[in-house]
Design a protein around this nucleic acid. Structure first.
Lengths: 329, 329
DNA sequence: CTGAAAGCGCTAACAC
DNA sequence: GTGTTAGCGCTTTCAG
């Protein structure tokens, strides 16, 4: 690998001059510049980013901490972040935290030691004492975190009300909710939306709340159980995987979807189009969330002002067969 | 952020000594060491990885280039790589190439400039002239590439024969194949396996080959078309997404799976358990592939010898409802 | 056992 | 316009 000194030598100039043409800063004679460029080309010289980083304290790299990339909600989010960062010549270090505060902390530390320019974080908690130590731009993604950090989330509460209301409107009255893990903030917000809507509709009954832990299998088992114990004609699942679990449970008991039990999921991942019947869902603008978070981070890194700190993106009801009105009795 | 000089000053020793205790290299007085450790703790000193990298030319970072993380085959692979690299204290830069040679090249360049210690690559082609320029350990993953690089792939050819034979054994005789993109090596290998098996069974008919481009929707349309034109009683899809497409097409035409048409996919992604009926598939050991690739890379980085250069992992037939023998007429 | 000094490859004053 | 120099924070000879 050629260094800047090699280039300087070949071009017969000082390294400073080479640096100047490289960074287009300062004046340099046209002729000289030409010679330098030739030397660069001839040696196929590429500046050493590490040396540059050491000096400038900026690495053109960001950290992206997600709970688990193999959870089907995250790949699209990650892809969006990578796409946008790539435009701005940033590279993305991917970290899986498994929702564990400890792993998050460790990664944050490692990322800081690598001089990352910023971090995009999908987390539920961030202990306050740590926060103060963070001197790297941070953007919080997907999870509402009441901090001063910029954040990009979708309207979980509103989406949940929308889903619940939709089931009501197609005629459901005994509407169950499969709730995600209570330590995940947006699972709680979705529950809150469901509860408030149900109360407003005068349908609230806490026995209709089922725990599914965001997992297909757990949701399936829980729904199997619940269907035997209670009369249920609609299910709002806290995420799409659990909606599939519900679908399987309902079908296993020989009931029809949506005729006997209507089902709606949450997230809008591609999976919902692959089931039979296809699942209605509350679709989050996943790609957009990631893209906006990335753009905000770039602005923060570049020290530009943000027009907005907290983004709450709207969600959208996607009606598919699992809640098709005409198909209900 | 404290530097090593701060620590040295506080402990009343030279930076060399601090470096020695940090890297446990060279001898240092027990007392002195204690003082140094105290100073480190007091200042909460963490060595600057960038400076270290500049000197040692090793960054404890690797690059992972995949076609597209939002393709459901890759998240698990990526997760496996990250998990293993994390054990060895490496960090992973994720790159999406969209199967484009140009993007791959660019990323390789950027990664090298960042002094990554190695690269894991999922690609079909690698032009020879580039290869020679690469002076970073590389491991090729998921795609057979006839190069000297170590590689980890699954037995695509064998898996395809297995799938085809399975359909035959449950009674199918007009077995169609939905083929993936012809520029993706393992799609071609799967086709080859299908063709050879069909020929051996004396069932080969090139009109039974359908193009699906690895996409659900394209596969669905193509199957819809094919089912109208030809007599087909079994479908072997080149990946799971296309199997779902086939399933949808068959169901849309009012045919039953597996009674009228049996379907088997390829890959074994979680999705296959979510459809109704659940899809049979050839399951690849995805996580293991990623994990092995990562371990190999670490060995190469550490300069240790590899017991094996080219890994071809076995695949497994997963029989589910979509090819359930008892359910066929 | 420990310190001084050089240098990884680059950039940014500061002179000329 | 261009070169000289110091230094980013660390590690490693080389002396002592």
């Amino acid at each position: 690998m050629a260094t800047i000194r090699d280039v300087a030598k070949l071009a017969g100039v000082s390294v400073a001059t080479v640096s100047r043409v490289l960074n287009q800063n300062g004046y340099v004679n046209e002729e000289t510049e030409k010679r330098v460029r030739q030397a660069i080309k001839k040696l196929n010289y590429k500046p050493n980013e590490v040396a540059r980083t050491l000096f400038k304290k900026t690495s053109k790299t960001i950290g992206l901490i997600v709970p688990d990339i193999s959870n089907p909600f995250f790949p699209e989010l990650v892809r969006a972040v990578e796409d946008v960062m790539n435009i701005y010549d940033y590279t993305v270090i991917l970290c899986n935290s498994d929702e564990k505060n400890e792993k998050e902390k460790e990664y944050m530390e490692v990322l800081k030691q690598k001089y990352v320019d910023g971090i995009i974080l999908t987390t539920n908690q961030l202990e306050l004492d740590e926060v103060s130590e963070i001197n790297v731009p941070v953007v919080v993604l997907d999870r509402p975190l009441n901090h001063s950090f910029p954040s990009v989330i979708a309207d979980n509460y509103g989406g949940a009300r929308l889903a619940t209301r939709h089931l009501y409107e197609i005629g459901c009255r005994r509407i169950a909710h499969i709730q995600g893990p209570s330590h995940v903030v947006n699972a709680v917000e979705r529950f809150n939306g469901y509860r408030d809507e149900m109360k407003e509709l005068g349908l609230w009954d806490e026995r209709l709340v089922i725990l599914g832990n965001y997992q297909l299998k757990q949701a399936k088992e829980a729904v199997l159980q619940a269907l035997k114990e209670y009369d249920i004609d609609g299910i709002f699942a806290g995420n799409d995987a659990m909606a599939v679990g519900a679908l399987k449970a309902v079908q296993q008991l020989g009931l029809r979807v949506p005729e006997d039990v209507a089902i709606i999921g949450y997230d809008g991942i591609p999976l919902t189009e692959m089931t039979t019947p296809e699942l209605s869902t509350i679709s989050q603008p996943i790609y957009e969330m990631g893209a906006i978070a990335a753009r905000i981070l770039v602005k923060k890194i570049e020290g530009k002002p943000l027009e907005q700190i907290h983004y709450v993106l709207p969600v959208e009801l996607i009606e598919r067969q699992s809640t098709r009105k005409g198909e209900r009795k």
